[in-house]
Computed example of a mutant assay.
Amino acid sequence: MGSSSKKYEGAVSWCAFGDAEEGDVTRAILRPNGELVLDLTTQGYVYSVALKEKSVQEYIGNWFCLDNGVESSGTARATLYRGTRGDMLYGSWSEDGRYQWWVELVEVENFRS
């Protein structure tokens, strides 16, 4: 990877036992040091995710969500798949059970907000 951070926006989805949730990636930054941070929104909730590259394209870390002054958190892991029309994360998400989650990432010059 180059010496500058990559910025992304996109969509996020979670699925467990047939139930699915969808949301937006309002910002994601892939830093040269292997850190990948994302801000996600779904159903009025805002999640902050901090992942660190464990091995080539394999990321592991934690998520945090503040709801009415109560913070919840859990673990997340994902593999980063690169493509010509965008990148994708796919992995597991721990929150009141285990979910599969995937994130479609589109590189942007600047964030919308």
Rank of each mutant, 00 (worst) to 15 (best):
G2N: 09
G2F: 01
S3T: 12
S3E: 13
S4I: 10
S5M: 09
S5L: 04
K6F: 12
K7W: 04
G10I: 10
G10K: 06
V12P: 05
V12Q: 06
S13V: 03
W14C: 09
W14Q: 05
C15S: 13
A16S: 11
A16E: 01
A16V: 04
F17V: 00
G18R: 04
A20K: 10
E21P: 00
G23T: 00
D24G: 08
D24C: 02
T26G: 15
R27L: 00
L30C: 04
R31S: 13
R31C: 06
P32C: 01
N33L: 02
N33T: 10
N33P: 03
L36G: 02
V37C: 05
D39N: 15
L40S: 00
L40N: 00
T41H: 01
T41G: 04
T42G: 02
T42Q: 08
T42H: 08
Q43P: 01
Y45I: 06
Y45P: 01
A50K: 14
A50V: 14
A50T: 15
A50F: 01
A50E: 11
L51Y: 03
L51T: 04
E53K: 11
K54T: 07
K54Y: 06
K54I: 01
S55N: 07
I60T: 11
W63L: 02
W63A: 02
C65N: 12
C65E: 13
L66S: 15
G69S: 03
E71R: 11
S73Y: 06
G74W: 07
G74H: 08
T75C: 04
A78L: 04
A78C: 10
T79H: 13
L80Y: 05
L80P: 03
L80I: 08
Y81M: 14
G83T: 05
G83I: 09
R85I: 05
R85H: 13
G86D: 09
M88W: 11
M88N: 04
M88E: 15
L89M: 13
Y90D: 12
Y90T: 02
G91P: 02
G91S: 03
G91H: 03
S92L: 14
S92I: 07
S94L: 09
E95T: 03
E95N: 14
E95D: 15
R98Q: 08
R98G: 08
R98E: 14
Y99S: 13
Q100R: 09
Q100S: 12
W101K: 05
W102Y: 12
W102F: 12
V103C: 15
E104H: 07
E109F: 02
E109P: 02
N110A: 11
F111V: 04
S113Y: 11
